[in-house]
Design a protein around this nucleic acid. Structure first.
Lengths: 229, 229
DNA sequence: GACACTAATGACAGTCACTGACAGTTGACA
DNA sequence: TGTCAACTGTCAGTGACTGTCATTAGTGTC
């Protein structure tokens, strides 16, 4: 009658030790992001973050391999979801369509997961810091590259290609990743922090991929000059 | 009769002080790359590099803002040449064609500039270290992103577009940059260190951009399976 | 050729990210 | 309840990087 936490389908409730660790980890992320948003990345020391959660610096480094890792924790969550979403797409779908749908569809799941941890508005402020801090931006780009590597592998596998021989999966993913990053940039530069805004930006940018690679922009839609007939 | 160094058309020979600085800088780059190729990036301290050139650590940091900067000095040279080459292309050329030609054409100039400083074979060994060292790869990707930003500006300007409104320049450049990076990777992973090999890889990868973005790879050329009919 | 002027350097101290080692504390589990 | 393993704090040490200040060494001038 007291077998709480072992309900059918639900994962067994982790022990006290595990819960404590989770709490510490969450607290560290929250404190870190708050401090970074307020004082910038370089203006925040690891000691500050550890002190805010009342643990030693050494403990901080047992949870995160580096200061960058905490700062990029939210993007990290998003990356996990995207990879998962790509894997979940039907295998007979066209590669570009798979990537597109995976990113757009996983958005809700991402926001939910992130929102549970930190307010989305805080994430947006941190994202601006990421974009404007060289060291952070570099780390962010590297992780994005790692994700691309993984996605290229998935695509190649389901298309029956050898990723080391045929350059197409990597090229496709690289182009796609570039577009996504453009969308992220525009989002963080704009002033609508809503999640819907980012999704819309991604949609728009993805729709521009075809036209952007066209040979001559001046004869395509959305042209800005040369406006006689 | 002894006004050497002031020949018509040639830049006036810099003074002793300037030449000395140049020599120190070159020596630092060479020593750094040699050590990094031999002992890896993390296995090489700034003190090692400074000691190899017989200057103080403080002096090293007066020449380079960070250890990363020396390690990425050769890629930096290449980036400068590419930006220059893009600017030199005719304004009425299609954007994608401009990027393609600029990269392929600037290759000789790049190799010459690099070769004067360090042996190309050494650069290749260093490049492998860059690819396999997280911190270096991150910095490399960030610089590549900066270059892309610049190229997008150039393209947008000559197409008469506003780079902050129209996403196409950035998207094009992002896709292009992704392809270039794939080519670089394949080069450093292969065993032909020749400059011609890299140029050929770039050509091939660029030719794959169109097909890679096609909706269905299985009906295009170079297909690997589904070989009935 | 001696003389100031200034740029380049070295020596030193200090900050901060990060790591290894060891000892103390606290959940887990019999 | 006691034992074991996991978690944590403390401390010392390394390496990248910066500010400061005294010293050295090209440069232009008379």
């Amino acid at each position: 009658m007291k077998t709480v936490g072992t309900a059918v389908g639900a994962p067994p409730r982790p022990g006290l030790r595990e819960r404590k660790k989770q709490r510490t980890r969450d607290a560290l992320v929250r404190a870190a992001l708050e401090l970074i948003a307020a004082r910038g990345y370089d203006g925040t020391t690891v000691d500050d973050i550890a002190a805010a959660v009342d643990v030693s610096q050494r403990t901080f480094f047992r949870y995160f391999a580096s200061k960058e890792e905490v700062a990029l924790f939210v993007p990290h969550l998003a990356e996990l979801r995207v990879a998962e979403a790509v894997r979940a797409r039907p295998r007979d779908e066209a590669p570009l369509e798979t990537l597109r749908r995976a990113v757009l569809d996983s958005w809700d799941a991402i926001n939910e997961a992130v929102g549970e941890l930190v307010p989305l508005e805080l994430h947006m402020r941190v994202y601006r810091v990421i974009e404007s801090t060289p060291a952070l931006l570099a780390a962010h780009l590297r992780r994005a590259a790692e994700l691309e590597e993984e996605l290229a592998g998935i695509i190649a596998e389901r298309e029956g290609l050898d990723v080391d021989t045929d350059p197409r999966p990597r090229i496709l993913v690289a182009a796609f990743g570039g577009v996504i990053r453009v969308a992220e940039r525009r989002w963080s530069a704009g002033d609508d922090p809503s999640t819907e805004a980012l999704r819309e930006l991604m949609r728009t940018c993805l729709d521009h991929v075809g036209p952007a690679l066209a040979t001559n922009w001046r004869t395509t839609a959305s042209l800005k000059r040369h406006n006689e007939t």
